[in-house]
Simulated assay, not measured.
Amino acid sequence: MKEQRTGRTPQRTYGGESPEERMVRRRASFIAAGRVLFSQIGYRKTTMRGLCAEAGLTDRYFYESFETIEDLLVAVYEELMGEMQGHIVAALQVAGPGRDADALIDIGLDAFFRQVEDTAAARVIWLEVLGVSPRVDQVYNHGIRGFAEFILVMSRTIAPHWPVSDEIARVVAMGMIGAASEAAKDWLMSGYQQPRAHLVQGIAMVFKGILLIAKASPPPAA
């Protein structure tokens, strides 16, 4: 049975911070500690003592935000995935609405693989979360599906008349994300032997090939 513990903090302002602000700061400190240790020594070797030492806090404060180290792993993974998607969106926004679809694919993939070059983040996203538990597997799959939905929205914007159902389109989007994700994992595990431009060019061929099919498809009958 999972042990549940909850820390208690004094309900008073201290050092200009409210109790809620202190809790948020301590939670962020443990997430930062998790990012360091999960990437350096791995989730399975990370201990409560190590996390507390890295965060500069006691386990009392760990338990006010998390029940288990697995909970912390989920929080770290979700934060990293959010950052990655945010960088891609930001790169596309900087590119502006006047760019053609091929250019946007190149820009988006370049932003994606730039994030993969962050070894610490990439190790957590593609290695440390795998096989931990059924629950973490579901969290991982949810993250991949989130990226697929993002690709689906972009694809529908570029080719709004592609005559396939949403269900089939989601399968295609999952395939596109799968190609990029597996290439990213292989790149990480090979020690980044290929230049980033090769990864962008190769996966862009997959994305652009699907885009060509979408553009060539006739619009649905009225």
Rank of each mutant, 00 (worst) to 15 (best):
L188G: 12
V206E: 08
V116N: 05
E70F: 08
P195H: 04
V129W: 02
V129D: 11
A111D: 13
E149L: 15
P195S: 06
M189R: 11
A221P: 03
A32W: 05
V200G: 04
W126C: 10
Q201P: 02
F38E: 01
I69F: 08
D186A: 03
A91E: 06
D137Q: 13
I41L: 04
R156A: 12
L152W: 08
V94H: 14
A53I: 02
A32V: 00
P218L: 07
P97G: 14
L199P: 05
G16R: 04
F113N: 07
G7E: 01
M189W: 01
T13L: 11
G143E: 05
D100S: 11
F62I: 01
M205Q: 14
A55V: 00
K215M: 13
F147N: 13
Y192D: 01
F113P: 01
K185D: 02
Q115E: 15
P219I: 03
D102Y: 15
T47W: 03
A204E: 08
R196G: 10
T9A: 06
G82N: 10
E79M: 07
G131Q: 14
I107S: 13
L51Q: 02
A90F: 08
N141T: 15
R60W: 00
E3V: 08
Q138N: 06
A111V: 10
D100H: 13
G143H: 08
V36I: 08
R170Q: 15
V200H: 13
E167Y: 09
G86K: 00
T46W: 00
E83R: 08
I177E: 05
G34R: 12
A169D: 12
T68Q: 07
E67Q: 13
S181I: 06
A180D: 07
D137N: 15
P220Q: 06
I41E: 07
